[in-house]
């Protein structure tokens, strides 16, 4: 199989590394969005729909203001609004956040199409709108260093924002008193309440943060990666982020590794497109990776519980 060796050769290249970084960025936003909501014990499963709506409103915002930053602001506002809807229904009205999430996911796709049609007259894409996007960033000095420059420089602007967000979120959750209180809500809300922590306020905060991160993911895809809104373009990235968080189970390093693994498998799938391997099988590689990852974690947990190292949750 000479084809296979060729494929393997193309994977050991700097271009492939760059490709993994491109394909992981959206997943990182989605996974951190899921992580921050879960840290206070609320499950935000509406990430896919928030990304869809923010992608659309990011593009519309960019059109209205004729600036990428304007698009980003409006996209984030849309994410905050949707997070607030989840918070209102689940915390004020007592609905299950999972059900509210299902409701949002069910109607967001059609609602996005409705808005798209209202503002552009098209139901397929925002092709008729002139929308300034973010573009890439060549870091001065570093870009001229061989190898390192190629790895670090020339990525999308929002990819660098993503790296900053991942670091800042780690500091917030694990290194600040606020983060410690947030995690306390997630571990045992009643105990946290007894200790004088305002659980509802922290959950609202984490949901809003989750909305902002999801929105960043949507805006990244529609204003930086592709620079156009096209129906269905999020294509399950929000769900993969939730799966990455499921695998990580509160461990930040595992979260990062899980996302990178998914990004790697997505990139591998692309390498296999156009080879003799059947396309249907290749298309399912990232999803099989998700499935295997989750199954692996369950098995590991089962044995840890059996050994008595960890109390069963």
């Amino acid at each position: 199989m000479s084809g296979l060796s060729q494929i393997l050769a193309s994977m050991v290249s700097l271009k492939f590394v760059a490709q993994i970084i491109r394909m992981s960025t959206g997943l990182f936003f989605a996974a951190t969005a899921s992580f921050v909501a879960a840290s206070t014990g609320v499950g935000n499963i509406a990430i896919e729909s928030i990304m869809t709506m923010s992608a659309l409103f990011g593009v519309l915002g960019s059109y209205w203001t004729q600036s990428a930053i304007g698009g980003l602001v409006i996209g984030i506002a849309c994410g905050i609004l949707m997070a607030a809807i989840i918070a209102f229904f689940s915390m004020r009205l007592g609905a299950s956040p999972i059900l509210v999430g299902i409701a949002l996911n069910t109607f967001a796709g059609s609602l996005a199409t409705f808005f798209l049609y209202q503002f552009t007259g098209s139901k397929g894409s925002s092709a008729s709108l002139r929308t300034p996007g973010f573009g890439s960033w060549d870091i001065p000095v570093i870009k001229d260093i061989p190898v390192l420059g190629e790895i670090l420089s020339g990525h999308y602007v929002l990819t660098y924002v993503c790296v900053a967000v991942v670091i800042l979120l780690y500091i917030l959750i694990f290194k600040t008193p606020l983060g410690m209180r947030m995690r306390a809500c997630g571990l045992n809300a009643d105990a946290a309440k007894t200790a004088g922590i305002n659980v509802d306020r922290l959950r609202l905060l984490s949901l809003i943060l989750s909305g902002i991160l999801s929105a960043l993911g949507g805006v990244f895809i529609a204003l930086n990666y592709i620079n156009l809104y096209s129906s269905g373009m999020i294509s399950g990235q929000g769900w993969m982020g939730i799966a990455a968080n499921g695998i990580a189970q509160g461990n930040y390093l595992s979260l990062i590794l899980a996302v990178l693994a998914f990004g790697l498998f997505k990139a591998v799938a692309v390498v296999f497109v156009g080879t003799e391997f059947p396309s249907e099988l290749i298309g399912s590689i990232p999803y099989i990776a998700v499935f295997v990852g989750i199954a692996l974690i369950s098995v590991i947990n089962y044995y840890r519980v059996k050994k008595g190292n960890v109390a069963e949750k």
């Binding site: 490709q19 394909m23 895809i221 592709i226 373009m233 294509s235 390498v271 156009g274 396309s279 298309g283």
Partner: peptide, 25 residues
């Protein structure tokens, strides 16, 4: 010629990536 079957009509990002691969070829 190179032929790519991404297996989707909506995943715009995937469309971009497979095209980059074709350009590499």
């Amino acid at each position: 010629y190179v032929i790519s079957y991404p297996g989707s009509f909506t995943d715009t990002a995937l469309g971009k990536e497979v095209t980059e691969k074709m350009i590499e070829k």
